[in-house]
Write a protein that binds this DNA or RNA. Structure first.
Length: 365
DNA sequence: CTCCCGTAGG
DNA sequence: CCTACGGGAG
């Protein structure tokens, strides 16, 4: 019976990167552990997020929630508050859900293989492969943006990396390249190489260990690869916030699903198609909420803030309004608005724009 | 301005 | 298959 496995294609590739990696790798805390919980935390945080931005969040999470049991036991809102500023907030909600699932259905032990990890919410093909290889040494090749870029350049692959159909081609190649002896080191090495040396702009080709074999370098195509179709232009949205205040409280509400910032808190909101919203309409909105302007307060200037997301621009105007009386209980029920003191407001998870407004504007008045 | 590109849901 | 979902660095 012949049980030998096929030799890796292009053995120079793994050899070069496995030699490059120990000499260039950054010293990062999740590279000192095999604890699947810590590795899972780091991978979810690093989805769509740079190491420099994610690192302080990782340190905060492993300190605040040292085990999956601690995370599972925390209120979702507290988890979201720790996530504040990191973006893609569904990651935090999914992470919290998965922590509870691991505790309830897996006895607090993370699944130990790719197929089972893939069933966890918020764990897709990349993250499942990362955890499986880093925590359990499973030979499964990760495919992230760095890997796409490196493979595209070295092997001259012109398939559009933005097209889901291209994945097959890259996955097939990566599966052939990954060595059985060190699948985890190989995965780390390719991604780190893409992050540090084979960067999107101004890659360090001069001192590249793959220069001789690299298709893009040899053909002067480094700046043309990888091929990636442009994202479509983002739309602009106009938010008009009514910052309702009474005494030392401000009214806020939790944002719902199917829009940006699900689960985070902001103020009473009217959205319009055009930038303008007349003072009259603002008062109409206020009246609909059952509120009445206090007459003994000077009108405050409208603050404007702009917030850019990858897929939409938000132009927000903040109308600070002092109420004559607290909002009636019925309005609180229907609108979801509730009064919060400054210290309570601080504890709520909020979009960065709202947190900035509160810190820079609201608390100065 | 451009670049980052993983997961879920439709 | 397609689109929605952040925030920051350069």
């Amino acid at each position: 019976m012949n049980t030998q496995t096929a030799l890796p294609a292009h053995p120079y590739f793994a050899q070069a990167l496995l030699e490059w990696y120990p000499r260039h790798r950054r010293d990062l805390p999740w590279r000192h552990t095999r604890d699947p919980y810590a590795i899972w935390l780091s991978e979810v945080i690093l989805q769509q997020t740079r190491v420099k931005q994610g690192l302080p969040y990782y340190l905060d999470f492993v300190t605040t929630y040292p085990t999956v049991h601690d995370l599972a036991a925390a209120p979702e809102e507290e988890v979201l508050r720790h996530w504040q500023g990191l973006g893609y907030y569904s990651r935090a909600r999914n992470m919290h859900h998965t922590a509870q699932q691991v505790v309830r259905e897996y006895g607090g032990q993370f699944p130990n293989n790719y197929a089972e990890l893939l069933k966890l919410r918020g764990v897709g093909q990349y993250t499942a492969a990362a955890i499986a290889s880093f925590a359990f040494g499973e030979k499964v090749a990760v495919l992230d943006g760095n890997v796409f870029r490196v493979l595209s350049r070295v092997f001259g692959i012109t398939a559009d990396i933005a097209a889901p159909a291209s994945r097959k081609e890259f996955q097939l190649l990566a599966n052939q390249l990954i060595p059985a002896e060190a699948p985890d080191e190989f995965n780390q090495a390719v991604m780190e190489f893409g992050a540090i040396q084979c960067t999107p702009v101004n890659p360090d080709c001069l001192f590249c260990p793959l220069q001789r074999e690299c298709y893009a370098f040899q053909h002067g195509m480094v700046n043309q690869l990888p091929v990636k179709t442009k994202a479509k232009a983002s739309r602009t949205r106009y938010f008009h916030y009514l910052v309702l205040r009474h005494g030392d409280t401000v009214y806020m509400r939790r944002r719902g699903p199917k829009d940006i910032w699900h689960g985070l808190y902001d103020f009473a909101l009217t959205e319009t198609e055009t930038p303008e919203l007349s003072a009259l309409e603002v008062l109409d909105t206020l009246e609909a909420l059952g509120g009445q302007v206090a007459t003994n307060r000077a009108e405050e200037p409208v603050q404007a803030l702009r917030h850019v997301l990858s897929h939409q621009k938000v132009e927000a105007r903040f109308h600070s309004i002092w109420l004559e009386a607290p909002l009636p209980a019925s309005v609180i029920t229907t609108s979801g608005l509730a009064p919060y003191t400054a210290s309570q407001t601080e504890e709520l998870p909020k979009p960065i724009m709202i947190a900035n407004y509160i810190n820079n504007r609201l608390n100065k008045n």
